[in-house]
Nucleic acid binder design. Structure first.
Length: 644
RNA sequence: GCCGGAGUAGCUCAGUGGUAGAGCAAUUCACUCGUAAUGAAUAGGCCAGGGGUUCGACUCCCCUCUCCGGCUCCA
């Protein structure tokens, strides 16, 4: 097998497979080697900007490889920028990376893009692709680069910040050119614009330069690109499927909850079906908390503003809190954004001995946070929500085992809900924080150790911790691969200090306990939103608000349907009888649309024989003449909760 | 909060300055039906709210609210 190298000047050089990139570079001359950004091996791509793989062989990649996809998408971003600069003279461009599933590019333009603009840009991109322009790479000095991008301040800002310590003089900055377009870029790229198989612009939005809301707001154009037209189409279908799972849409369709305008943004009401689902989740939460040794407490939704002063929330969290409610001359009251201070007051209600520790207090605590108007998003980001919150007070020696227990608890809880893939973030000390540095270091270290030994994959999120301590945030992957943050385990040495918490040690000395804040579901609202999307509304039977729908064939079977309902309910099942005047087909259809796990049909034959017809969600076939007793045992088995 | 888009019947949507329409859902009647849509009739709207322009506004302009896509932020 040989490798054909294509160069921007059209030269094609043949090499045997297995030679190193360096050897190729030498054989064709150093100047060309740098210019030759990509080569082709049949339909595979190779990039000379990093030509050698681990075994010292040519690193050949295809578009289907993660690297290849990245190169494809990044090349698309260039073509996008080229199209925009062509079509909108006077506009300038900022950055345009490849991202998951696609790419974007940020521009500063006179007018925000419209849908028509997007179509015009896409058309121009198609023209550039049809022209099959070669991508060429070159290196220039910082000064040369600043001159080239004289009209593009964002590029000049990037150039000024490039780290030039590791490159040779005069080659500080690399550029990629195709046709008249030039962009600042490390590469690599496809050999030419004609190598883009399938690209589609998706949407536009505002985005801040450098992600900083104090700086310019740019116009971002998002697109997606794939190795083939078919994969692009598949992606678009997947997007549509994801839309069908949208918990806001399913919430209305399955009559679970709503967000009445009259209540205000981000405030939900739960309808009976959603209420039942929620009751099942709450019952489960209480059961498993009890199983893990937690005790239940209740705290009010309001507290004097002094309390929030002591806790530090007014200093560090004020922008997310609803302002103080002031009545006459009385001290103001604040609606709680967190449950911790309430639990702390319970701990503080009397002196504590080391023999009592750990003390684990839990509450399904409703909290209210003022979220900026643009961030509210269904159940996933509400202004009022309920945390399955707990606060564990323990000694330093108990921290390790307590943290392991909490992690185990969280994973068990998430697995029971149907999730199987987990990733953790270890969020470390933020800029605005309280407490001694040595204790921050200690806390971060112990969290890292616990995570390390758990075997759960994790990454460090620098500066993402709470103001009072570092935390482990647990993310789950849902059925279609999306990542959601749910649980959080937070280590806290600060609030015990601020509230002067103590326990008496074995040596009869006053010691300060540690606190572990933990929400297993995170918030019930977000958790249920994610559950809805994960299961696409077809919940595991133990969760389903309606587990069985009974369909009488004709009105004369309603009485028998009622009897079957009664015996099923005696076995703990949640059952509805469809007494509408619809046809059997209609009623079946309604039950399936509502994603009820089981449908029972009863007609003349069943009344006589004491049987039912049984049909399960997701199965097209039905089984007739099932004795009621057998139906009960099958259904109750299916509806069984995960073992505690 | 910022940039864009949108708000018409319970839902999905038509309606480009001359006083509002469809399908589904609902209600009623007929049909009483064996596994994904029986037929007919009826009812249903302060066209998100407020202000303005106009002889006249769902339609044009301004403000507010709410939602959607992102940015920023987050459970």
């Amino acid at each position: 097998m040989s490798i054909d190298l294509e160069y921007p000047d059209g030269k094609v050089v043949e090499h045997p497979n297995g030679v190193s990139g360096l050897e190729i570079a030498e054989s064709i001359g150093p100047g060309l080697a740098r210019a030759a950004v990509a080569v082709r091996v049949d339909d595979e791509l190779l990039d000379l900007s990093r030509p050698i793989n681990r075994s010292g062989k040519l690193a050949v990649i295809t578009l289907a490889d993660p690297d290849g996809l990245h190169i494809l998408r990044h090349s698309c971003a260039h073509v996008l920028a080229q199209a925009v600069l062509d079509l909108y003279p006077g506009s300038t461009f900022a950055i345009g990376p490849a991202i998951e599933d696609g790419f974007y590019y940020d521009f500063k333009v006179k007018e925000p893009f419209t849908q028509e603009d997007l179509e015009a840009i896409q058309d121009r991109m198609e023209e550039i692709m049809a022209a099959d322009q070669l991508f060429t790479r070159e290196s220039v000095s910082t000064d040369e680069a600043l001159e080239i991008f004289i009209d593009h301040p964002f590029k000049r800002e990037i150039i000024a910040n490039v780290d030039t310590s590791e490159v040779s003089e005069g080659e500080d900055v690399t550029l990629y050119r195709n046709d008249g377009f030039v962009d600042l870029c490390r590469g690599p790229h496809l050999p030419s614009t004609g190598r883009i198989p399938a690209v589609k612009l998706l949407r536009t939005s505002g985005a801040y330069w450098r992600g900083d809301q104090e700086r310019d707001q740019l116009q971002r154009v998002y697109g997606t690109a794939w190795p083939s037209k078919k994969e692009l189409d598949d992606f678009l279908v997947r997007q549509e499927e994801a839309e069908k799972r949208d918990h806001r849409k399913l919430g209305a369709e399955l009559d679970l909850f709503s967000f009445p305008d009259e209540l205000g943004s981000g405030l939900a009401v739960w309808h009976p079906k959603g209420g039942m689902l929620r009751k099942v989740i709450e019952d489960r939460s209480r059961d498993i908390h009890e199983r893990y040794g937690f005790e239940f407490v209740y705290t009010p939704h309001l507290a004097k503003s002094d309390l929030w002063e002591t806790s530090g929330h007014l200093g560090y969290y004020a922008e997310n809190m609803y302002p103080s409610l002031d009545v006459d001359d009385e001290e103001g009251y604040i609606v709680k954004p967190m449950n911790c201070p309430g639990h702390i007051l319970i701990y503080k209600s009397r002196p504590r001995s080391y023999r009592e520790l750990p003390i684990r207090l839990s509450e399904l605590g409703a909290v209210y946070r003022y979220e900026k108007s643009g961030v509210v998003h269904g159940l996933l980001r509400a202004r009022g929500f309920t945390q399955d919150d707990s606060h564990t007070f323990c000694t330093e020696e108990q921290l390790d085992s307590e943290l392991r227990m909490h992690l185990d608890f969280v994973i068990t809880w998430l697995k029971d809900a149907g999730f199987s893939e987990f990733e953790a973030d270890l969020s470390t000390q933020p800029e605005k924080s309280v407490g001694e540095q040595s204790r921050w270091d200690f806390s971060e270290k112990i969290l890292a150790e616990v995570l390390e030994s758990s075997g759960i994959p994790y990454q460090v999120a620098e500066g993402e911790g709470a103001f009072y301590g570092p935390k482990i945030d647990m993310h789950v992957k849902d059925a279609i691969g999306r990542r959601w943050q749910l649980s959080t385990i937070q280590l806290d040495f600060t609030l015990p200090e601020r509230f002067e918490l103590e326990y008496t040690s074995a040596a009869n000395a006053a010691e300060q306990p540690y606190m572990i804040h933990c929400a297993k579901a995170g918030s019930l609202e977000r958790f249920m939103g994610v559950l809805i999307e994960h299961h696409a509304g077809a919940f595991p039977m133990w969760m389903a608000p309606v587990q069985v729908t009974i369909v009488p064939v004709a009105d004369r079977h309603i009485e028998y349907a009622g009897k079957v309902k009664a015996v099923l309910e005696d076995s703990g099942l949640r059952v509805e009888v469809d007494e509408s005047g619809d046809t059997v087909g209609d009623k079946i259809r309604t039950a399936i649309t509502q994603k009820h796990p089981a449908v029972i049909v009863v007609g003349d034959n069943d009344v006589d024989a004491g049987t039912v017809g049984l049909r399960l969600y997701g199965e097209d076939k039905d089984t007739r003449g099932v004795p009621v007793g057998e139906a009960i045992s099958r259904l109750t088995e299916m509806a069984e909760k995960p073992a505690l």
